[in-house]
Nucleic acid binder design. Structure first.
Length: 263
DNA sequence: ATGTCACTTACGAAGTGA
């Protein structure tokens, strides 16, 4: 079973890339972020034609998340607990059934939070607290669970080419990293870091200033595994080459392989 | 060199978010 996450920066702008990458990497489940469209505008048909079931939690203009799954969805639930007034489409949870039991997957788009002196940062920190509360509840189920998406968090200095450039940024502030550690310390395993401690592993490169050409990137897209999922870890990787395609997203896909049979 | 991209309104170009 292969599960992947990708911030596509508009699914309609990136449809050709998405289809090409799905054929190449052949993931069983895909978590998408920044689809930037309402549910009705999501390009379901070309993805269903590749054998995927599609679940969408979109909104006009900004944000928006989705899930693609070769396994049928048993349950789908949009929205993160903890703030009924939050209208931003950033969270979509689904349950699927494998040969050996259930698998729970979340596609999440954690708020950017810049500039840190504004309510945008408060919203980010509150969102992280809500995510941790959600995770604490779900871990009680003792299921294989994957929290996948664009976390907008650089966990450690090793996750940036130039950490000094990010010290005042909402993605790298001590408070941000502290909240991320609180989530991790519930018992999650970072899939990419579980298989490699290499420097230079990034998932995002700014469009500006030739950042990709200089590998001036950051690692902010993460696949976090519950203990019951981590027990099945086989491999994980970053599809960096996709950033070199024409008119790319500023993020690239990240995937994990688990030795769980689909059906 | 904040050197880019995507979306919106509304028909050209500016504002927003990242």
């Amino acid at each position: 079973m292969r599960i992947a996450t990708w911030n596509v920066n508009s699914v309609r702008q990136r449809l050709d890339h998405l289809v090409a990458w799905l054929k190449e990497r052949e993931p069983d489940i895909v978590c998408l972020q920044e689809i930037k469209c309402v549910d009705d505008a999501f390009p379901r048909e070309p993805l269903e034609a590749l054998g995927y079931n599609v679940a969408v939690h979109g909104q006009k203009t900004f944000n928006g998340v989705a899930l693609l799954s070769k396994l049928p969805f048993d349950e789908v639930a949009p929205g993160l607990i903890g703030d009924d007034g939050d209208v931003q489409a950033r969270f979509l949870e689904a349950l699927v059934s494998t040969k050996t039991g259930v698998l729970r997957v979340v596609s999440l788009y954690l708020p950017n939070g810049n500039p840190p002196t504004t309510e945008k940062y408060t919203y980010k920190i509150n969102w992280m607290d809500r995510l941790t509360n959600f995770a604490r509840e779900r871990l009680k189920l003792e299921e294989p669970l994957l929290l996948c998406g664009d976390y907008n968090v650089i966990p450690t200095p090793a996750d940036a080419k130039r950490p000094e450039a990010w010290v005042n940024d909402a993605l790298f502030l001590p408070k941000t990293r502290e909240k991320f550690r609180s989530l991790m310390n519930l018992g999650f395993t970072d899939a990419v870091r579980a298989v490699s401690d290499s420097d230079g592993l990034f998932t995002f490169w700014d469009y500006q200033a030739g950042a990709f050409q200089k590998n001036d990137g950051i690692r902010i897209d993460h696949l976090l595994m519950s203990p019951q999922a981590a027990d099945h870890l086989v491999d994980a990787g970053i599809d960096k080459h996709v950033r070199g395609w024409e008119k790319p997203s500023d993020h690239v896909p990240v995937y994990v392989d688990l030795d769980i049979e689909g059906r």
